[in-house]
Design a protein around this nucleic acid. Sequence first.
DNA 1: CTGAAAATATGTACTTATTACACATTAGGA
DNA 2: TCCTAATGTGTAATAAGTACATATTTTCAG
Lengths: 229, 229
Amino acid sequence: MTPIHSFKSAAAEKRSHQSYFKIGLSVDCVIFGYADKELQVLVIKSDLKEFAGQWSLLGDLVRPEEDIDEASYRVLEERTGLKNVFLEQAQAFGECDRHPSGRVVTIAYYSLIDINNHKLQFNENELSWKPVRTLKKMAFDHRKILDTCLQRLREQVFEKPLLFNLLPVKFALRDLQELYESVLGEPLDRRNFRKKIAVKEWLRDTGELERSVVHRPGRLYAKSQSGKR
Amino acid sequence: MTPIHSFKSAAAEKRSHQSYFKIGLSVDCVIFGYADKELQVLVIKSDLKEFAGQWSLLGDLVRPEEDIDEASYRVLEERTGLKNVFLEQAQAFGECDRHPSGRVVTIAYYSLIDINNHKLQFNENELSWKPVRTLKKMAFDHRKILDTCLQRLREQVFEKPLLFNLLPVKFALRDLQELYESVLGEPLDRRNFRKKIAVKEWLRDTGELERSVVHRPGRLYAKSQSGKR
DNA sequence: CTGAAAATATGTACTTATTACACATTAGGA
DNA sequence: TCCTAATGTGTAATAAGTACATATTTTCAG
């Protein structure tokens, strides 16, 4: 057994650096958006020949001088220009053969951003939004990572006001309900949904109404101040 | 930005190995037990001078040829001799300065075992069980890791039949309730607790009664077959 | 043998949360 | 002015969670 928490002898240390420090460490970000009434995820074309034509999540190796949380924020900011957005660690994925070019353990994060309230920074490698539904196969184990993050998100949506991050500042309750339905993958009863949201005090009535709808307009709401990320 | 998922040029690859592959990767196991009506955790004396006299969790560097899950099982088995027990990943911890000897990112796992149903394998470094309550300060960020795992455990105890792993095969309902109270850190109403457990069908009545108690003996139960880990 | 001690086993009323479900109202457009 | 398509709203029924008290069973002491 290698005493991880000791590093005592020089020999042990050398051995560590020779064999144990050859594991690469990366972060991968599952960046969710919402458009066309569907949950979307930000992906990039893989440039590994093994995965030619397949989509992969946004990720990067963790730098020696940055925390893993910093690394994930960096990846997010480099691609979206956004800072100070919700970003949370989901899980580490560390199967030996998950990366064809070598041993890379990755730590998955997920984030929620408003697609229309930012511009993608680099359009290299066909960086783009894809509906989660349509991504059958992805590079690496990224479909599995996406599923894990989506599941985590589903567990959280009624606990924390996360989904507001996917919407513009003002939105109708119908928009919010459709978003919840997209994320949860099931229809919700309108009255029960409104009641459930109402008791949480996540919403602030802006006093405004929808415009340009061909029916009775709904009230527009915004995330209330008390509703934290 | 380093293209983590490409490794295209030789120069980039060299740079990767020079700077990015210098992050150590470990697993740390929070191994819970139950004794003296208290939740216990398996710890070892740190042999780092920075943490002289402090307790640390059981961990080890991940080997290049093993999955991270395998690594955590290995740590658990090396110390307890146990295989095929519940062990689940909680979270990765990757602050730059969490390890005084260098950059080591660790992935935390937690496990639940029956203290009396195994023998500790190595008694080096004062490997021992300590009540969670009494561990104020620990080596590294291990107290934080412990807290995270404990919180995760608390969220799960009424969802999955986890705590049975901490008890002997046969136990009275009072034992089970006391265990739940230890883990949750709060008293529970006896009648409501029994009702809550009953509907889950995690228990099988063995037909036996407690012995050598100085009062009316309680029925002994065992984990039912349907109740998975 | 009896009584005291200490725990087990159990049910009900109250409150809160979840579900199912229908109709009057409003604005736009023809 | 009427039609369309949506908004906005309440109640009854069920399920889940909480608070709470008494009779029963065993051991032990006298």
